[in-house]
Design a protein around this nucleic acid. Structure first.
Length: 122
DNA sequence: ACAGTGACAACAT
DNA sequence: TATGTTGCCACTG
């Protein structure tokens, strides 16, 4: 049973549209925990061992500088770059992209409320 | 209960 | 610009 926080992170990431990206910190802010950026990364790290349906587009999350994490010591970083390019986002050899240009605006309050407090939607 | 661990982020050199 | 340091928070054994 995944924790509530993980599920909240996954719920948000699923809303990121094709061709757009956001950062770990911004997801933390959306969830009302402005300083939990690190925990967001931790949540995504735990993803491969627990495949979800619908799938979670983890590749659309980069750091606050618009750079792919896991600095190229793992093939995962290259895979992430390829997936982003496939969605039309240019990624440099240094694994960076234009964050402001492709930044996902975020969620409407209504949808956000459903994620944070599912019990209050009726 | 508690210390250790990160796919972070901001700041300081 | 490029590293290093520090604060953070949820999760794990």
């Amino acid at each position: 049973m995944p924790s509530n926080f993980y599920e909240q992170v996954y719920a948000v990431v699923r809303r990121i549209p094709v061709g757009q990206v956001t950062s770990y910190g911004r997801i933390a802010h959306l969830l009302g925990r402005p300083r939990a950026a690190r925990a967001v990364g931790y949540a995504l790290n735990a993803l491969p061992s627990a495949p979800h349906i619908p799938p979670v587009p983890w590749h659309r999350v980069v750091n606050s500088h618009g750079r792919i994490s896991l600095s190229n010591r793992e093939f995962n970083a290259q895979e992430q770059a390829e997936r982003l390019r496939a969605e039309g986002i240019p990624v440099t050899a240094e694994l960076t992209l234009d964050l402001p240009k492709h930044l996902w605006p975020g969620l409407p309050l209504e949808e956000l409320d459903e994620i944070i407090s599912p019990s209050t939607h009726y």
